[in-house]
Simulated assay, not measured.
Amino acid sequence: MDATKITHVSIEPLNIPLEAPFTIAIGAKHNIENVLVTIQLENGVQGYGEAAPLEPINGENQATALATLTSCKPFLIGQKASDYRQLSKQLKNVFWAQATARCAIEMALLDAYTKTLEIPLFQFWGGAEHQIETDYTIDIVAPITARENAQKLAQQGYKTLKTKVGKSLKDDVNRLLAIKEGAPDCRIMLDANQGYTPSEAIHFLEVLEKNDIRPELFEQPVVKHDLQGMKLVKENTSVPVAADETVFTSADALAVARTGCADLINIKLMKSGLIEALDIAAIARSANIGLMIGCMLESKLGLSTSVHFAAGLGGFQFIDLDPHLDPEKEPFKDGPAFNAPNYQLTNDAGIGVRKK
């Protein structure tokens, strides 16, 4: 018997309503519409993976992820989870544009494999840290709501707040002033989601400075392909600039390193997949580019995998893995323990997440 041989693969939609719309500069989501992959091995171990497509970001949606994953089932049956790197390579050669679908498979493979090895995933990746601290994101909302949310989050223990910007400079400034008023001791991060031109981004930072607001980070200020525009922003501010949508692959990370257009790279497993994310992190470190980790609209399963990734590798300067769902509405349980704003890694094998 080959313990890690895949005997069964199931694929099902993962639909969860959000309490409030998740709004960014290039779109809004009212529901989590993901896909769950379950891989069963010959030894009886099950591994779980999640695809969390966000069409405005990666061009994928639930329907495309379901179609891709369904077409992968015949290929996966009979393969070995221990061959996860080779399987990842083959899947990327065929489904290079379907990153969230590939991520779900890689997640399930590694969950099942590390469960078989009886070690936590973060230990498999190096076990650099046992606890990481996340920020919390305030969406594009009215200033009064932003102030109330900031005050509540500060009282819960969050030390860093991130807000979305890029739709209206005036509204963005008013929201940031409200956040500062509600949580004066919290650090503030900005995420424009490609919402500004280079000149608008520079002007925006100048306006913030006049209002005595200095962000800790300015994420993806311009459209993703405008590396020279991002470099212009970087060269005209002392605020660190992070590339997010600009980097989906290791080749993208190399382009950032070559042009010197960003101080940090935001790794999101749903943009690249798990194996490609390891390559992106290696390139960033070799080029003295800082590391950040973020997320899409994942459930506890996807978020927990990102927690394992950041803790396993270590050295991430910014952690943006705030939970989107009330624990009661989560379809999963266990995994890294969360006590705002900290994730505590456990000794549970694999990702440690189980279906309710």
Results as ranks from 00 to 15, higher is better:
A28Q: 12
S272D: 04
T23N: 06
K92Q: 02
T64A: 11
T116S: 02
N174H: 12
P215N: 01
L91M: 10
I105N: 02
V241S: 06
V353N: 04
E133S: 14
A28V: 07
Y84Q: 02
A281R: 05
P56G: 09
R258G: 13
Y158N: 04
H225G: 06
M230G: 12
K5S: 10
V239G: 08
F124L: 09
P323R: 09
D334A: 14
D2I: 00
F318W: 11
K329T: 13
L297D: 02
I293D: 05
D326T: 13
G315Q: 09
I319A: 06
F75I: 12
K300W: 10
F95T: 05
W96Q: 06
P143V: 08
G47R: 02
K5D: 06
S10G: 14
P198D: 08
G126E: 05
G314V: 05
N34S: 15
A81Q: 02
P56Y: 06
G315P: 09
N339P: 01
T145G: 03
F122E: 03
R187C: 10
S250T: 05
A183Y: 10
T68I: 07
F124H: 14
A257T: 15
L36D: 07
Y158T: 05
A112P: 06
T160Q: 01
E328T: 12
E276P: 09
E206V: 13
L232Y: 10
K80R: 14
K231N: 13
S82Q: 11
Q46G: 03
K73W: 00
A67P: 02
I293F: 01
I280A: 04
L274G: 05
P215C: 01
L169E: 02
G314N: 06
N236V: 03
T23W: 02
A349N: 01
T100Y: 01
R354T: 13
K329L: 11
N174Y: 10
C72M: 15
A154F: 02
I77V: 15
L232R: 12
I283L: 11
L41P: 12
Q220Y: 06
D111T: 07
T70E: 07
K5N: 07
D226P: 05
F218V: 01
N34E: 14
G126W: 03
L41K: 11
A287W: 11
V37N: 01
V222F: 04
I26D: 05
N34D: 15
I213G: 07
A20W: 01
L227D: 04
F204W: 15
T23Q: 08
K271F: 13
